[in-house]
Structure formats: C-alpha cells, structure tokens
C-alpha cells in the first residue's frame, strides 16, 4: 500500500516537474517619481579624425552642429578649468546659412552650407565683428580646411578682446538690422553660471567620475564628454550626456573607460546650462541660445 502510494506520489511529482516549468511572474517597475538618474547619451563625433565640430574647446558652439540651423546666435559664458587654473571668456557668435547652397566633401556628403551676412548684429549695443567661418573636415584620409563664408563674432577673454561681457543670471539685448528690412530687437535670459567639480577615481584599473555642480534645475542641461588627442591641442567632443540639472551625475563608467590612453592624453568634461529661444520677434529660422559652459580638463595618465 505504502509503496503504491509512493509510486503515485513520485509519478505525480515528476509530472508536475515536467509540466510546471514556469517561473513566478516578474513585476514591472515604473519610474513614476523620476528618481532614477537620467542619462541620455549621444555620439557627437562619429569620425575620430573629423574636426568639423572641434573648433576649439573654449570657443562658442563647441558642440553645436550648425548644419542643423539656418540662423544661429549663440551667446556663451565659458569657464575653463585646467590644472586648478580657471580662465573665463565671453563669446557672441552668429551665423546665417543658405541651405540652398550645400558644401560637400569628395564623397558628396554635406559638410556644411554657405554662410552669408544678412545685416548688422549688435549684442548689448556692441556691433559684432564679421570674420570668415572656417571648418576642418576629414576627406579621403586628409584633414582639409574650408571656409563656409563669414560669420558674426565677439570674443573677450583674460580681460582682452571685444567689449562684450557675458553676464550670468541676467539678460542680453540683441539688436538685428537686416538689409533690407526693419530692425529687430529682443532680449534673452542668461542662465546661472554652472560651476562644476569632478571627483575622478580609479578602481581595479577602471575610471570612475562623479560630477557635482551647482544645481539650478534648468530645463536644458547637458554634459559633453570629450578627449584631447595625443600631441594635439584640439578636443574631440565624443559624447553628449543629457541629464537633469540636479547637481550630481555619475558618468557611465563604460563611456569614460572607452577613452583610451593610447589615443588620448586628456579627458574633457563640459557642463552646459542653456537657455534657448526660437524665432525671436518673429524672425523665421533664427535660434538664439545663451549658455554657461564649464569645461574641466584632466590629464590621462
């Protein structure tokens, strides 16, 4: 009797084992309180030799791909920290592109559009200078420089240069006199200056970076992770990281550790707090931005 029951039990158990191969249902978690650390990563330079965007780590529009704009006025207060030494600059940059006149490389890819000067641009009553806009791009393995045309520029650094000063947490008055056309005048708010600090550590040969900055909960905040090629001055902006302006970000270690010391000798973090304005005063196809950039450079050892 017992042995028969045992057999029945064992057979039942085996049948259940075979039939019961499910596993308990998972629970989905939703981030309804936005408590997770927001990290959106975008590749900026697809070609490692392409210097199209890298017109200087301390200049305006460091990561603005002007191919996306028809008209752009970029007002930037920059703080550069390198080896505990800070440099502050102010830049006003303006460019208008004729999107009917693309400039292509030898593979017929658009690398830009011809620029033009539609009139006079004044920033805080300072007339912007007109200068050639030169880009560098990689073509058939060779770095080439080309001029797209002219652009507007005001630059002041180390107490020298143009009289334009970027005042943070304030506003900047922009006056545009198109030829022909009526004068347009508008103001744009400037953000609170972003001042960051980076705690860089190494554990088991892996780099870890925790960024802290003065949180302002601004709507547009991003961090550009770039690197400086060995033996060269120019910085490649590699990745754009969009995150909340909450004062703290742990850089995904994989991004950091992908920057090889074989190719690069410095790592660059640019914290950017930005205010944007589209089509001010009804000026079509014009985008105006004011931004605070704090760029911190660390040597890779």
């Amino acid at each position: 009797m017992k042995s028969k029951l045992l057999i029945i039990v064992l057979i039942s158990a085996a049948a259940l084992l075979i039939g019961g191969c499910d596993k308990p249902a998972p629970t989905e978690l939703i981030d309804d309180q936005s408590v997770q650390e927001l990290v959106e990563v975008e590749v900026l330079s697809k070609e490692i030799e392409d210097e199209y965007y890298s017109n200087g780590f301390d200049t305006t529009g460091i990561t603005q791909d002007i191919r996306n704009f028809t008209g752009l006025i970029s007002l930037t207060g920059t703080r550069l920290t390198i080896k505990n030494f800070d440099i502050e600059t102010s830049t006003a940059f303006g460019i208008f592109l004729d999107r009917t006149k693309p400039i292509r490389n030898s593979e017929n890819e658009i690398i830009g559009f011809q620029s033009f000067i539609p009139g006079q641009l004044q920033i805080n009553n300072h007339i912007a200078r007109i200068a050639p806009f030169i880009i560098r791009f990689r073509d058939q393995g060779i770095n080439r420089d080309t001029t797209l045309g002219n652009h507007y520029i005001l630059f002041r650094g180390k107490g020298f240069g143009d009289p334009f000063v970027f005042n943070y947490n304030s506003s900047i008055e922009v006056q545009f006199n198109p030829q022909p056309g009526n004068q347009k005048q508008f103001t744009i708010q400037t953000p609170t200056q972003v001042i960051g600090n980076i705690n860089l550590s190494k554990k088991e040969n892996k780099l870890n970076a925790v960024l802290q900055w003065n949180a302002a909960n601004s709507r547009e905040f991003e961090i550009i992770l770039g690197a400086k090629k060995k033996g060269k001055r120019n910085v490649f902006p590699l990745f754009r990281i969009r995150t909340r302006d909450d004062g703290l970000l742990r850089i995904p270690p994989n991004l950091l550790n992908s920057i090889s010391t074989q190719n690069f000798d410095a790592i660059v973090f640019s914290l950017i707090r930005r205010v944007s304005k589209n089509e001010p005063e009804g000026i079509q196809n014009l985008t105006v931005i004011s931004q605070s950039i704090h760029t911190i450079i660390f040597d890779l050892y």
């Binding site: 596993k23 308990p24 998972p26 629970t27 989905e28 981030d31 650390e37 990563v41 975008e42 969009r242």
Partner: peptide, 29 residues
C-alpha cells in the same frame, strides 16, 4: 526552492540617442 524567486523588470532613465534623434531606452532586470 526553484519557485522561491522574485524578478523585477524596469526601464532605466538611461538611453542612447541615435543619429536620427530617436531614443533607445536601457532596461534592467
């Protein structure tokens, strides 16, 4: 205890922004 288990799935706030500006979220388990 093969059935003594609990699994949680969720999409993290992390994402990859592709060249066409689409967002590719990362998930965790």
């Amino acid at each position: 205890t093969p059935g003594y288990q609990k699994e949680f799935n969720f999409n993290t706030a992390s994402a990859i922004i592709l060249s066409d500006s689409t967002r590719q979220s990362l998930s965790s388990k």
